[in-house]
Simulated scan of single mutants.
Amino acid sequence: MQLLFYISSFIALLATVMVITRYQPIHALLYLVVSFLAVAMIFLSLGAPFVAVLEVIIYAGAIMVLFIFVVMMLNLDKETAAQERKWLTPKVWLGPSLLVLVLLGEMIVLLLKGNGSALPGTTVPPRAVALSLYGPYLIAVELAGFLLMAGIVGAAHIGQHKKKHLHRFLEEKSTIP
Score class of each variant (00 low, 15 high):
46 L>F: 07
24 Q>M: 03
168 R>C: 05
123 T>P: 04
130 A>F: 15
166 L>A: 09
122 T>C: 06
76 L>T: 03
101 L>N: 05
54 L>E: 05
106 E>H: 13
91 K>L: 14
41 M>A: 13
105 G>P: 00
13 L>R: 10
85 R>I: 01
39 V>H: 01
80 T>H: 11
12 A>N: 10
74 L>A: 13
137 Y>Q: 08
142 E>F: 14
22 R>G: 01
54 L>V: 07
9 S>M: 10
161 H>M: 13
166 L>F: 12
46 L>A: 07
4 L>Y: 12
127 R>P: 03
37 L>W: 00
62 A>G: 14
83 Q>I: 06
22 R>P: 01
109 V>L: 12
62 A>S: 12
12 A>L: 14
49 P>S: 10
55 E>M: 08
138 L>Q: 15
8 S>I: 02
65 V>Q: 06
32 L>E: 00
66 L>Y: 12
149 M>H: 12
96 P>V: 04
162 K>M: 13
26 I>T: 07
16 T>V: 02
17 V>K: 14
125 P>V: 04
16 T>S: 12
126 P>H: 07
36 F>T: 00
11 I>D: 03
37 L>P: 01
105 G>F: 06
59 Y>N: 09
132 S>G: 09
112 L>E: 08
167 H>R: 12
138 L>P: 03
65 V>H: 05
151 G>Q: 03
17 V>D: 09
109 V>P: 03
160 Q>I: 07
89 T>R: 10
55 E>W: 00
